[in-house]
Design a protein around this nucleic acid. Structure first.
Lengths: 210, 210
DNA sequence: TAAAGTTCCGACAGTTTGGGGGATATTGTA
DNA sequence: TACAATATCCCCCAAACTGTCGGAACTTTA
């Protein structure tokens, strides 16, 4: 008994118990409707575009093509659908690959049922639902290291270098002499204990100096 | 009548009505305690370290030193304190500067009172509370552009270039010939319609190809 | 007032860069 | 299966860039 305004939700999750659990939960929540529930990307691929879901709950560990790998393919099949990752994994690399691949949210599987419903609602309203710990990791990824040995000017110049600009061009953009830029770079290399552009950039990024 | 286990909250907010409103809200919530409420960074600087707050609610638009500029200074005064930004502004640049400066959360001022309380609780529990729209912007900043004209290999090589590595080094790391790297770069430049490393990196980053 | 930071100077060998012209496999897919 | 796209490799060249050496003067800040 579908209503026109129901939020249409699809699920890709290999564990049958979990999948049916979610389907039951969502199907029995007023205003939400399950349009399809699949155990793998391969199974979903054929029919999911026809389901026309508003939101897709996607597991990352799937048999065959993993959820992460399936993400860009699903995005192409469903350009208008919000994809929420639902997983037990909290590894940084996985999270950032998922967000880079077009996920609009990232929930861990210990998320209480009512939170899953509210996350679906939230993503429809322009939000970006994340589990608390995930959100912390995402925020931390932006945090600069205040303990930098580099001065403001040195940091600024290293930032320019990391964009691939030549020293000459940096000098022009900062309205200083080429020699000054060279001098700063000399000091940067000493402080970071490196002997090349690439190593300086790597050290600085690893330590969040830039 | 402070209890030992109360969460200690400080506030820096120039608007008196809002400041007192928050102070009243938090002070009257069991388990929370206001240790100080200041209209500016300058006012707070003298006393806030002595307050020893667990969480600091910080406005970004302050008279004198702005909240954003005050962030690193406050971090030094209060290394253990979680800082939550509370502001009407939702500009990308401001958000990322705040998170880069060490903020642990970012709330807009239309946040309902109970959400402010739960955000304070959440940050104490290892979370990263954000308003829905902020979270969406943060997530979007990671999203890659699937419409890239570059092939996988070209993208990979451009990524290496953006770390400052020389072509020779890239060739070594990818176990291919220097000439192959040059060939890929030639194609990348053609596709992106640029004539230098710096321009290629800029175009690719602007368009989220890398 | 010291110390730290920013600015500028010159010379050198070696490396990198961007552009030109190709060729040959391997892939994916229509 | 055949075509287009991709990935690999080859040669040549001039110009520009890089990293290091060893300075010096001026300004800001603690």
């Amino acid at each position: 008994m579908a209503r026109d305004l129901d939020i249409r939700v699809a699920i890709i999750e290999d564990d049958e118990t979990i999948r049916e659990g979610y389907a039951y939960l969502i199907g029995n929540t007023p205003g939400y409707k399950v349009t399809g529930a699949y155990p793998s990307y391969e199974d979903a691929a054929k029919k999911i575009a026809h389901d026309d879901p508003d939101v897709l709950l996607l597991d990352v560990e799937l048999p065959g093509i993993s959820g992460i790998e399936a993400l860009p393919k699903l995005k192409k099949l469903l350009p208008e659908t919000y994809i929420l990752i639902l997983t037990v994994y909290e590894q940084e690399e996985l999270i950032f690959r998922a967000l880079g691949g077009g996920a609009s949210g990232y929930l861990t599987k210990n998320t209480p049922h009512e939170k899953i419903i509210s996350a679906i609602h939230e993503v429809m309203e322009g939000g970006g639902p994340m589990s608390a710990h995930i959100a912390r990791m995402v925020i931390s990824s932006f945090k600069r290291n205040e303990e930098t040995p580099l001065t403001k000017r040195e940091t600024e110049i290293l930032e320019h270098i990391s964009t691939g600009k030549s020293r000459k061009r940096i000098a022009q953009e900062l309205f200083i002499d080429l020699e000054t830029v060279k001098s700063h770079i000399k000091n940067i290399y000493h402080k970071l204990n490196v002997h090349s552009k690439a190593d300086a950039i790597k050290t600085a990024k690893d330590n969040k100096f830039i």
